[in-house]
Nucleic acid binder design. Sequence first.
DNA 1: TCTGAGTGTTTAATCGATTAACCTCGAGTG
DNA 2: CACTCGAGGTTAATCGATTAAACACTCAGA
Lengths: 352, 352
Amino acid sequence: MDRATLREVSELADVSVATASLVLSGKAENRFTPETAERVRQAADKLGYRTNRLARSLRSQQTRVLGLISVEVLTTPYAGDMIRGAQTAARGRDYDLLIVEIDGTPEAFAEGFELLADHRADGVLVASFFHQELPVPEVRPRHLVLADAVALDHSVDAFIPNEFDSITQVLNLIGEAGHVHVGYVGDCNDFPAVRGREAALKAAADRFGWVKIEENIVRSEDTNSSDGYHSAIKLLTANRDLTAIVAYNDRLAMGVYRAASELGLEIPEDLSVVGFDDQLLISEALRPGLTTVALPHLEMGRLAVEKLISLVESEDENTPAEVAIMGDLVERGSVAPPRKGSNKFSSELGKS
Amino acid sequence: MDRATLREVSELADVSVATASLVLSGKAENRFTPETAERVRQAADKLGYRTNRLARSLRSQQTRVLGLISVEVLTTPYAGDMIRGAQTAARGRDYDLLIVEIDGTPEAFAEGFELLADHRADGVLVASFFHQELPVPEVRPRHLVLADAVALDHSVDAFIPNEFDSITQVLNLIGEAGHVHVGYVGDCNDFPAVRGREAALKAAADRFGWVKIEENIVRSEDTNSSDGYHSAIKLLTANRDLTAIVAYNDRLAMGVYRAASELGLEIPEDLSVVGFDDQLLISEALRPGLTTVALPHLEMGRLAVEKLISLVESEDENTPAEVAIMGDLVERGSVAPPRKGSNKFSSELGKS
DNA sequence: TCTGAGTGTTTAATCGATTAACCTCGAGTG
DNA sequence: CACTCGAGGTTAATCGATTAAACACTCAGA
């Protein structure tokens, strides 16, 4: 049941191993008579010949294998599409992916790099489960590209989401609907994603004339639904004029929904909500569906692999660049114009 | 910057390549003087020598690479832990994983198998994103194991969840709390997971004397939250005595929560709810937290790899077996004893 | 002195594919 | 007729590690 070797093919075709190799690799188009070539091809076909990648790689000093270091992408439900994008792109160029899952520590990187070096991967792609700055060690593969992450020292090619323009899409939706009392449920960490989204928020606030946006920002310790809930409660009770809340991500937005429901606020009639990430388990399940932005995971994976292959295949000098990619707006129904005057919540409270 | 070869090491140590190899592989413990051995080791150290896996594999005819065919595991947020379990187990035995993502069609399998055969994987693990029956082609790797799936013809070793006993844990919780009017929001497909869970439901109904369980089963077309909502509404309006609902999975349970909230039923006071899967994005985010069962993904991945390695390393005859593994009960607070008499919903309606 | 048995180390074949360099033969050229 | 040249192949080195078999040497025993 073992695969046939080139020697077996060449014997069946009654030629030398060299001839068989040359014919099958197509690297000597017209050095052989059509009959010889055909005989070789038939023999290969008959024996189900496939070239032994180990042997080829050993000889050619390239494996056509790309290492993929997954920083928690495999084990968190956020960014699987990035790997799919990467795999599709790689397969399309006849490369395969060797995937190693690690946490993001420098030691784990070193181990991962070592393992991939042992396998003689032609290049390495590091994919992160969210847009962060990674401590990529100095000792690193010759060809390296990052996806959904940048190197702390910005010394590596990277494909990241355009946080600013992406979230601006939902901010515009809020602004154009006429909201001016807008709150923001954020994250307290210092990540590029956090900085980018808040910068966009402030720009939008300026542009649309949102009222006292600085005071309507609450930053959660963590970004789970329950933090979103507490933050939203805090926002909505402190500022009863709020008619829209922007959440840093969909999980926080989920908490905002719960807060709204508890306070008797209908979404979107009394309160518009937008999220970020388009985590389907949440954004599709909430009622009404959450208007949010889908991160360009597939694209980042694809582009990163294509860049990596181009690095591998041309030995030209390369100047590392960070490419920011737009996310897709997904409108579902959690945004509506504000009620006249103020939201139901504040008017009800006004009565009592 | 390229890695040192054995020849370079041997030259530095002033011995033959054979000696260097023998010393470093530890396969000839006392054939050399301690001084020679030490000299070789020092040289290897100094040069940062690591054996070239391609060369070794080519020679030894085994790669210490296991293929992992992921049937949508990578790209759905359900079962990433299975891959983590598999990778950890493999690394612990000095194997690496070559992962290929496919959909579950026979053609995709064939392609995946071919690709892994090209890479001379020593064995292949197929991991599915849920417990299903897979059409594994006849032409298959010599060593093959399934995780979270069985072969249609049951001809392959498999590690699967014990659906019956796993869900019985939450069913017992419901029964022991004293509920007798129990509803079930199910799935209409004919999967092992569906059959196992419904069988357990019926067994529990018998054991606890649940009232007319057959009539309180609604099967959804799909298993998203919105189907769970519609099914729960149907159940709760048709049978006002229901005090507990069991959902086929957490996503459906999420819909049940919404239905309950819409009907003014408090969970767990008026209605107990249990799910299955422990999908954290849902089970942790819902209020109250969802009591559910965590599938043994990590374990399945781990055990499958260990079985696979044992197949690879001993050429003994093997009789395929399917091993069912228990899931873990996760209690969060969506179960309470029923209200005296009946639920709030039915009593309120009774008044009007 | 010769044989035998260890010890310590090297020689050389091998895994399978690639490819530069070489060979052979017949046709064409001056 | 001697010589060149191209078409159509083949030879053999190479990638790096593994390992059976051979070799060189020492020392004990006959």
